[in-house]
């Protein structure tokens, strides 16, 4: 141990440069590889187990659900959708999708089926709905694709519907599920959004009965959601504490899809 008394030699500047560069670029390279691997894992992660939601990579679906929880905190019935004068409403209302409303349908025989918590099924006619006070709204309808259009709808407020048909008990559950008569298109709504004061069971468009391709005789207008949640030709409504089936959530879209 004859060297033990000699002090450790001071590093030269060049050695310091080399040492720091080596460490920094080493860490940089490792982080780069880790980032690349991490991205590859995420990008190629297995798809979620198909259920109420489907079609997304499993970790991406978890992220969508977590983001929903974060933004639900900002939801409030006091946050109203901006409304416009009727003169600004589009005369040619954009028609984007026909899922669930393509088949032959006897509008005269239509009745809205509402399943209550006790299993009882209410059969409600369009005249019963039209007999109640009408609410109109002119607002900017927004599609998940990115387009929007100012549209004019009229119908029965969801909260009025709930009250009139004695569904207050059902409205305490977490979700509302709506389906077309052929059950091919379904929409699941978190109850706060469904009960937003601007959510409407619409039977009029531009002051006239809704045309067939826009969802006659009764469709949903829910301005706090993207268009995909605005189900046409509602056949049935049910309530539950679990997420009801939702057509686009099963195609890989966010279940919440709130605005």
């Amino acid at each position: 141990m004859k060297n033990s008394n000699t002090p450790k030699k001071e590093l030269t500047v060049q050695q310091k440069i080399n040492r720091r560069s080596f460490i920094s670029f080493g860490v940089f390279g490792l982080m780069g590889v880790a980032a690349y691997k991490g991205w590859n894992w995420l990008y190629n992660a297995p798809r979620e187990t198909a259920g109420i939601t489907a079609g997304a990579r499993a970790p991406m679906r978890r992220a969508l659900n977590q983001t929903e929880l974060a933004f639900r905190r900002f939801f409030s019935n006091n946050h109203l959708v901006k409304t416009y004068p009727k003169s600004m409403a589009a005369k040619n209302v954009r028609h984007n999708s026909d899922v669930g409303v393509k088949d032959h349908f006897d509008i005269a025989a239509w009745k809205l089926q509402v399943t209550r918590s006790n299993g009882e099924v209410l059969q409600i006619t369009i005249d019963q709905i039209k007999a109640l006070p009408k609410t109109e709204i002119v607002y900017d309808f927004k599609c998940v694709e990115g387009w929007d259009q100012i549209q004019y709808w009229g119908g029965l407020k969801m909260i009025d519907f709930i009250e009139h048909f004695g569904l207050a008990q059902e409205a305490t559950l977490a979700y509302m599920g709506l389906m077309t008569p052929n059950r091919q298109y379904q929409v699941g709504l978190d109850m706060p959004s469904a009960l937003h004061p601007q959510t409407i069971l619409a039977y009029e468009m531009n002051g006239k009965p809704i045309p067939g391709n826009h969802g006659a005789p009764l469709r949903l207008i829910i301005p706090v959601k993207y268009g995909i949640k605005n189900i046409k030709r509602i056949g049935s409504i049910a309530f539950s504490n679990n997420r009801p089936p939702d057509y686009w959530a099963r195609q890989g879209y966010d279940y919440y899809s709130g605005l």
Binding site: A56, M60, A63, L64, T67, V144, E145, G252, D254
Partner: peptide, 14 residues
């Protein structure tokens, strides 16, 4: 790939 784009956009925005 809209659904995919939205999912990535709304994750990486954080």
């Amino acid at each position: 790939r809209l659904r995919e784009g939205m999912a990535f956009h709304f994750l990486f925005m954080w």
